[in-house]
Design a protein around this nucleic acid. Structure first.
Lengths: 229, 229
DNA sequence: CGCGAGCTTGACGTTGTTCAACTAGAGTGG
DNA sequence: CCACTCTAGTTGAACAACGTCAAGCTCGCG
């Protein structure tokens, strides 16, 4: 797969954002002409914390993690194909306050941010969808902060497993994309504790693991653990 | 002060949102006619977690706290006069996932949410300001999550004091509106630890306290504590 | 076959919470 | 006016939760 893919036709693109059709034909063509498509390999950095915001970023194919870098990393969210990466940065700072990297080979559409904003503002229905997307991010992060602050590590790890099963994989059996360290960064604990709790859950027959493969045997029990901290 | 204030003229109102003037005159009148002004006493609940979203809420006078209720409360933000209370709820769930209560006697403008949305969508420039407001909330909560997760309790308490001095009171001496318990809920720790650290800071000559009155004597040192966790 | 990254487990130390006792001040009723 | 009570604040000691450190394991890859 070449690193830069030639511009696709946004109107017929099978990976396009589901609200793209709200725009008129010439706006879509305009976005297409102001868009660079880049293929990132697994592990590559897509956005580096502290750099300038110049594009609206869309995950056409693949999966990425959004995280805050510091003395330790905090993974705030996982973004899979068909979604923009946090559009709120277009309307706030001119610098990213987070980093983004590819969890698997990913195709990212980078739309010039000025052009994206101009287009959005010319079409209220489209801007509304942008606003909804940002609003949903805010709702999600409120839920996340609540989970992180109010629960102990067992509950938080249970939360994470449920989240991936229900939202990302839509199955109780999955080949987990995160390393143990990343799972820990997503659940705000140390890697050792993430491993320890996975082992406990396995010993208790709540889950089964085989390397990166995870099988949730008792989802209801896992939910109860999540709820009772 | 009567509980319900008669509708004010939004165009000449000294408390109006600074972007209100983007709207046409008849839209402003429309908002005015779809708005109920309620005076809340200190301590009263303005929004109860789990209830339906029916209004856009604007803090015309006073100050409120937005918090998540659970086994313990987590205060996510303080909203003072001249700001809307988290507009993102208009675009997500139909239920609040947080509660809001008055930290002091407050005048709240409650605009019918359907009308607010309809008006915003009829005027892209106004909708952009709504989107910016939501975007700023998201940026702030990312910063907050980062502080809460990466710092220890001394650093978190230092953060909170700096936040109130710089953003809310714009002075290093202030009559603190929060109880020790609320300060703890804002900083994610127990009330006992909040008290203990305040005592330490006082003993070390970093701050002075006298009941609710707080005086930051060495703001630079406090910042260094915040930065070095 | 050997190396290294990711994973696993145990022992131990630190951080922060819980519990309990106590103080100060504000409001209430006899 | 004084006892009474209630709430907010304060401090210390015991305890639990979590992180750190260290050692060893496993599996894929050169």
């Amino acid at each position: 797969m070449p690193r830069v893919t030639a511009p696709l036709n946004c109107q017929t693109c099978p990976y396009k954002w589901k609200y793209m059709d709200i725009l008129e034909e010439d706006s879509i063509t305009g976005i297409q002409n102001n868009c660079t498509i880049i293929n990132f390999k697994k592990g590559e950095t897509i956005v580096k914390q502290g750099t300038n915001v110049t594009h609206a970023l869309y995950v056409a194919k693949g999966m990425v993690k959004l995280y805050i870098e510091g003395s330790k990393n905090i993974i705030l969210k996982i973004i899979s194909n068909g979604n923009y990466i946090d559009l709120q940065t277009l309307y706030t700072d001119k610098r990213y306050n987070y980093s983004v990297s590819a969890l698997e080979n990913s195709m990212i559409c980078m739309v010039n941010s000025d052009y994206f904003i101009k287009t959005a503002e010319s079409k209220p229905g489209f801007l509304v969808e942008v606003t909804k997307s940002i609003s949903n991010s805010l709702r999600d992060v409120y839920d996340k902060i609540s989970d992180l602050e109010s629960k102990q590590i067992r509950g938080r790890l249970a939360d994470s497993l449920i989240y991936f099963a229900e939202n990302i994989y839509k199955s109780n059996t999955f080949d987990f994309i995160l390393t143990r360290k990343e799972l820990a960064e997503f659940s705000n604990m140390t890697m050792e504790n993430a491993v320890r709790i996975l082992s406990e859950f396995k010993k208790d027959g709540i889950i089964d693991t085989n390397g990166r493969e995870i099988n949730i045997l008792q989802p209801e029990l896992l939910k109860r653990i999540s709820e009772n901290s």
